[in-house]
């Protein structure tokens, strides 16, 4: 299944999913997206920027301050952001540093099974 097909599947199968986006956090570039018709490129860019904030070096430094600076840096694999009008799940994907899958869900949508579905897609991308 191609990446586009995977994103289409996420958008179609996850209840309340408004957008499924694949992007490169380091380049700040959205590479593929499947989303509701009323969402625009700027919305995908904003979603990727939130993924960068939640999974990027700043967030990993927060973890290091909590758990201590070990021999290996604290690698963030996933983040969930529950904001007033939407819930977002961000999961690092693929073998290339910085690649991430983002899904934006309507607020209040249950997250049961969403993480597992995303991990399945991420594994397929490797």
């Amino acid at each position: 299944m191609t990446l586009v097909e995977q994103l289409t599947r996420l958008h179609r199968d996850i209840p309340g999913c408004r957008a499924a986006v694949f992007g490169d956090m380091e380049a700040g570039t959205v590479l593929r997206a499947c989303a509701d018709a009323d969402l625009r490129q700027e919305d995908h860019d904003a979603l990727l920027a939130e993924a960068s904030a939640c999974l990027g070096p700043g967030a990993e430094r927060l973890l290091a301050r909590v758990f201590g600076q070990g021999a290996t840096p604290h690698r963030l694999s996933q983040a969930i952001l529950a904001a007033p009008l939407q819930t977002c799940v961000f999961l690092r994907s693929g073998t290339t540093e910085g690649e991430v899958i983002c899904v934006s869900l309507d607020a209040g949508t249950t997250l049961e099974g969403v993480g597992a579905t995303l991990r399945e897609v991420a594994r397929a991308d490797e």
Partner: peptide, 23 residues
């Protein structure tokens, strides 16, 4: 300063490490 939680309204963020811990 790092996470997008300072906007109006309640916000929750859970960060998960590869090792199975979550903040």
């Amino acid at each position: 300063d790092v996470l997008p939680i300072a906007q109006p309204g309640p916000h929750a963020i859970i960060l998960q490490t590869a090792g199975g811990d979550a903040l």
